[in-house]
Simulated assay, not measured.
Amino acid sequence: MEDSATSTPKTSTPVKKKKRGRVVSILFIILLIVGALLWGGFQLFGRLNYVYEYDARVGGTLIIVSSRVSGWVTKRAVEQGSEIKKGQLLVQIDSRESTLKVQHYDVKLQGVKAKIDRLAAERAMVERQINSRHDTLESEFQAAEAATQALKAQRKLAMADFERSQSLLERKIIARQTYDKDNMELQRLEGEVAEALAKQKAARAKLEEVEADRERLTVLDQQLSILKSQKNEYLVLKEQQHLDLRDRTILSIIDGVVDETFVEKGEYVNPGQRLILIHDPLDIWVDANIKETQIRRVKRGQTVLISVDAYPDKEFKGTVKAVGNTTTGKFALLPNPNPSGNFTKITQRIPVRIAVEQQKTMLRPGMLVEVKIIVDPIALSSFFRSK
């Protein structure tokens, strides 16, 4: 009896353990199903409300600073990683020869300016002399013309007296002496008129000679024009040399950082040679390549959540700025004409640019990022049809 009483509890213990294990298994399965449903619901919600893309990276305007002139590098004022300000010196190229050429053109300009001043003074003097002679001869001509007119009037009166005396002499009213006197007066006035006309003609000839002297002013004007053209040529050459001189002092055109340097002090550079690579850390964006099956849901102005591999605990916000009009495959260097006839359909990608605000220069061009574009939710039927 004691043996049977003690055997009953021993058989009931395995049964309880078996039931307990079955309950744990059922609860575990239920938890797995609930977890799978939650995960599936979360994934479905994300697919309906977001467009994900992992093929994305930070972009920026990388400026290659090149040389416009040739020469020896006498100074490189920055190093890789240096922060720079707009107008700060980057590279200095030997400028001694350019400085001497500028001084050479300064001397040339001074010589031409002296010639111009001398010719201008000579022209002014010649013009004053010509104007003075012209005024004098003009007065003499006018005086000769007035004297001629007066003598012509006297001759006309003497002619009338002579004709009257001749008529009276024929009628023997006057004496021969009176006729001869009037005749002599007329002859005298004829001579004076002729002399006055000669003086008037001489005065006119001198005036014409003075006017001919004005051709000398024309010659001087031409010489001045040639010198002024030469001066302008030297000014252009000097300005060109000034430009060459300024190009030898290479300054930064932006506030930014130095990404890479390509020259060292003492190297000889040629026009167009790369010297330094810089960029503005505030002028950045994100370029994402979105699948063509999802591009219809992407619109300008949509909010974008950005996660960066370098900062896994930091989330950035951006805005869709532009949606490309051509797939990335069209920009490939080697086109794929598919001459064999075998075709494998590959989903194409379309570039999308996302504006993002910089935060403490954390984002740098080339960094890999993941983007999540918040889009308008789509219906389940459309979602499964797209899949």
Rank of each mutant, 00 (worst) to 15 (best):
305 L>M: 11
167 S>N: 12
379 A>T: 15
345 K>F: 07
37 L>Y: 10
340 S>K: 14
188 R>I: 15
348 Q>A: 08
327 T>A: 10
150 A>Y: 11
201 K>T: 08
292 E>M: 04
90 L>H: 01
158 A>T: 01
6 T>M: 08
335 P>N: 03
104 H>V: 05
156 K>D: 14
28 F>V: 13
35 G>A: 15
38 L>G: 09
92 Q>S: 11
105 Y>S: 08
322 A>N: 12
348 Q>R: 13
373 I>N: 02
287 D>E: 12
165 S>V: 01
43 Q>D: 11
201 K>M: 10
100 L>Q: 10
137 L>A: 08
110 Q>F: 05
166 Q>M: 09
14 P>T: 00
43 Q>N: 14
31 L>N: 07
30 I>A: 12
300 R>V: 12
277 L>T: 05
336 N>I: 13
136 T>R: 15
219 V>D: 14
280 D>Y: 03
189 L>G: 04
312 P>F: 02
362 M>Y: 06
323 V>M: 02
342 N>C: 07
269 V>N: 04
164 R>A: 06
241 Q>H: 08
37 L>K: 09
174 I>S: 00
270 N>K: 13
221 D>F: 02
48 L>E: 06
383 F>A: 09
148 T>W: 03
31 L>C: 11
144 A>L: 01
234 Y>R: 01
215 E>G: 12
132 S>A: 14
92 Q>I: 01
240 Q>K: 09
188 R>Q: 14
258 V>L: 03
277 L>V: 03
323 V>R: 00
32 L>F: 06
344 T>I: 14
91 V>Y: 00
363 L>I: 04
222 Q>N: 15
141 F>Y: 13
37 L>T: 06
141 F>V: 07
130 I>K: 05
18 K>I: 14
374 I>R: 12
69 V>F: 02
264 E>F: 06
205 A>Y: 14
129 Q>M: 13
187 Q>L: 13
271 P>H: 02
72 W>C: 11
42 F>H: 14
28 F>W: 12
115 K>G: 12
303 T>Y: 09
240 Q>F: 05
179 Y>C: 00
186 L>P: 00
324 G>K: 03
34 V>R: 06
207 L>E: 03
139 S>G: 15
171 R>P: 04
361 T>V: 11
171 R>M: 07
168 L>M: 06
326 T>S: 13
223 Q>N: 12
201 K>H: 11
17 K>A: 10
277 L>S: 09
134 H>S: 15
346 I>T: 13
295 I>W: 05
79 E>W: 07
27 L>G: 05
248 R>L: 04
239 E>H: 07
164 R>S: 07
336 N>P: 08
197 L>S: 07
81 G>H: 05
377 P>F: 02
312 P>M: 01
156 K>V: 10
94 D>G: 02
76 R>K: 15
88 Q>T: 00
10 K>L: 15
144 A>Y: 02
297 R>Y: 04
122 E>L: 08
243 L>W: 11
126 V>T: 12
40 G>T: 11
34 V>A: 11
128 R>N: 15
41 G>Y: 03
179 Y>V: 00
86 K>M: 07
230 Q>G: 05
